[in-house]
């Protein structure tokens, strides 16, 4: 277990350094950083002073080491587009994205497991079949079209929910939250569904097929023979054993939630990190792009690590396999 953990963390560190190197190369070689920061009116002496201050006269490895040091201290440079430190921009927008990701993740997980169990237990029911058919359409539609369709139906036609923005937010310390106001909560509904729908259908289909598989096994039959209640069998025994693949897929899908968040935030004009990234790609704002790359990579590496560790917690067979107990 410990050896496994150390190996995984070492691997994660290597990936992070590679990504950091990539991000640094973007900084260094895309256009001229000095020209980008000073504008056309600067004198040659000013340029040289800036070059020195940024450390661009140093050899490449020294510059890379300095970059890593700055990143470790939370200094990600200054945005070319708005001229403010990148870390401040990210800090401002991170709460919006995290709240959206949290709610849509919950929606995907709860909805996916619930519907998956339902469609597995009522296999031939009319509702189950309808759900399965609809889920097939949901998977094949592009995310942004689902978002637009939801806006059209619930915001334009029915006028139940807002079509863009976060609504009113409350500031608590450095964090702005939409959880505490009515309009904030209402604004979360459509983006969360848009973002979580694809993951939800995926989890639902997975839980359904795993449940069907497990319900056929011998130990379920024995549990029935022992006279356990249907509820205990379905939820205590069957559902628990479907969870390993669900954890894997959910973990891997957390990564794609980040990518899908870019689309969702654009459709709903959500003031999050994803829309910040899109505007910096449009404006070729290198420091913001590089920072986003680092954040996302860090997030993915972290999630993969957690997923691996969760396996150990959920599946006892894996624990005994690595400690060599048998």
């Amino acid at each position: 277990m410990l050896a496994f953990l150390i190996r995984r963390i070492a691997e994660a560190l290597v990936v992070m350094v590679v990504v950091a190197f990539f991000a640094f190369s973007m900084f260094r070689f895309m256009g001229d950083p000095v020209a980008n920061m000073m504008g056309p009116d600067a004198t040659i002496a000013d340029r040289e002073a800036m070059t020195k201050r940024l450390g661009l006269d140093q050899p490449f490895p020294v510059q890379f080491a300095a970059f890593l040091g700055n990143v470790a201290e939370g200094d990600f440079g200054v945005s070319f587009r708005v001229g403010r430190p990148v870390i401040d921009l990210v800090k401002e927008r991170l709460p919006a994205t995290l709240e959206l990701a949290l709610i849509s993740g919950l929606f995907a997980l709860v909805g996916g497991i619930g519907l998956g169990v339902y469609t597995a237990l009522r296999r031939d029911g009319l509702l189950s079949r309808a759900i399965m058919a609809i889920s097939l359409i949901g998977v094949s539609l592009p995310t942004f079209l689902i978002g637009i369709a939801l806006i059209y139906l619930f915001a334009v036609e029915l006028r139940w929910l807002p079509s863009f923005g976060r609504g009113e937010t409350v500031r608590i310390g450095g964090w702005t939250t939409g959880f505490l106001t009515g309009s904030g909560l209402a604004s979360l509904v459509l983006p969360s569904i848009t973002l979580g729908l694809f993951q939800m259908t995926l989890i639902m289909r997975l839980v359904r097929s795993e449940m069907l598989e497990v319900l056929r096994t011998d130990y379920i039959r024995f549990a029935r023979a022992r006279g356990l209640t249907t509820r205990a069998i379905h939820f205590g025994h069957a559902l628990k054993n479907t969870l390993v693949p669900v954890i894997t897929v959910t973990g891997l899908q957390l990564g794609s939630i980040v990518a899908f968040a870019i689309i969702t935030e654009t459709v709903f004009q959500w003031p999050g990190v994803g829309s910040l990234f899109i505007s910096s790609v449009q404006a070729v704002d290198v420091p913001v792009m590089a920072t986003y790359l680092l954040f996302v990579a860090g997030f993915f590496v972290f999630v993969n690590l957690v997923v691996d560790l969760l396996y150990f917690a959920v599946d006892p067979r894996l624990r005994s396999a690595t400690t060599g107990g048998h």
Binding site: V258, A259, F260, A297, F300
Partner: peptide, 12 residues
């Protein structure tokens, strides 16, 4: 490990 869309956006 990175979604296609993100890689494409970065390269773009």
């Amino acid at each position: 490990t990175f979604p296609d869309l993100l890689v494409a956006l970065m390269i773009f």
